[in-house]
Amino acid sequence: MILLSSAIPNDLLGAAYYLAVKYAPLFLFGIRNTLIIALTSTIIGLFLGLAVGLLKSIPVLPDDPTWKKFAIKLIHFVSSAYVEVFRGTPMMVQAIFIYYTFLNFFKLFPLLGSYKLTAGIVIVSINTGAYMAEIIRAGIQSLDKGQNEAARSIGMSNFQAMFYIILPQAIKNAFPAIGNEFVVNIKDTSVLNVIGTTELFFQANTVAGTTFRFTDTFFVAAILYFVLTYSTTRVLAIIEHRMQVPVSGGPSSSSTPGLIAHTEKQV
C-alpha cells in the first residue's frame, strides 16, 4: 500500500494523469452510471413535470359543481406542494429520505444489477420533476393566450388545444431550460454518494480512499465532470440552434427543411 502510493508522481498533473490511467475502469464505470442516471432522470423528470404542469393548469370554472371544484383545487394543492417541497429541500436530504423509506422496494427492482442505481434514478427523477413542472408552466405562460383562444375557436377541446397547440410550443420555448436541467443533473448525481450509488463522485471517493491522494483524485473527477457538462452544453446549443427557438414573437429567419420536417410530424 505504501509502496503503491509512493509510485504516484508528486506534481498535480503528473499524479492526476497517473491516477486517471491506473484507475480508468473505476472512473469509466462512474461516468457510465452518472450519465445513465442524469439522462434517464431528466427524461422521466420531464414527463413528470409535464404531468404536474398539466394538472396545475386544469382550470376551475365558475359553473363547475362543488365537488369538482374541490377535486380540482385538491389536485392543484398536491401538485404545488410537490413542487415546493422538492425545490425547497436539499436533494441530499431527499435522497436519504426516499432511499431508506423505499429500500425494500428498490431491492426488488435492481437496474443493471444494482438497486442503488434504481434508487438514484428514482430520486433524481422526482427532484427533476419538480423543477420541470415550473419550467413547463413558465413555457406555457410565455405563450400568447391568443394561441389557446384560436385553438378553442376552431372547436378544439381544452385537452386538444393543450396537446396539439400549447405544449409543442411551450416545450420548444423551454428547451434551453430543459437542457440545462440535464447539465445540472450530471453534476447533482454526486449527492447520490450518500446512498452509495456508484456514480462518478463515489468512484473518485473510492480511489482517493485507496491512494490517500484526495487533491489529485478529485482534480481528475473535476476534469471529468467538466468534460461531461461542457460537451453536453455544446451539443444542446447545436440542437437549440437547429430548432430555431424561440417560437413565438421574435422575427425568426428562413424556414429550414429541418424545421418543416420536424413540425410535420406533429400534425
Binding site: 400568447d144 391568443g146 394561441q147 413565438s248 418543416i260 413540425t263 410535420e264
Partner: peptide, 8 residues
C-alpha cells in the same frame, strides 16, 4: 391573427 406558430 393567432396563427399556430409551430405549424406550417
Amino acid at each position: 391573427f393567432n396563427l399556430f406558430n409551430h405549424l406550417s
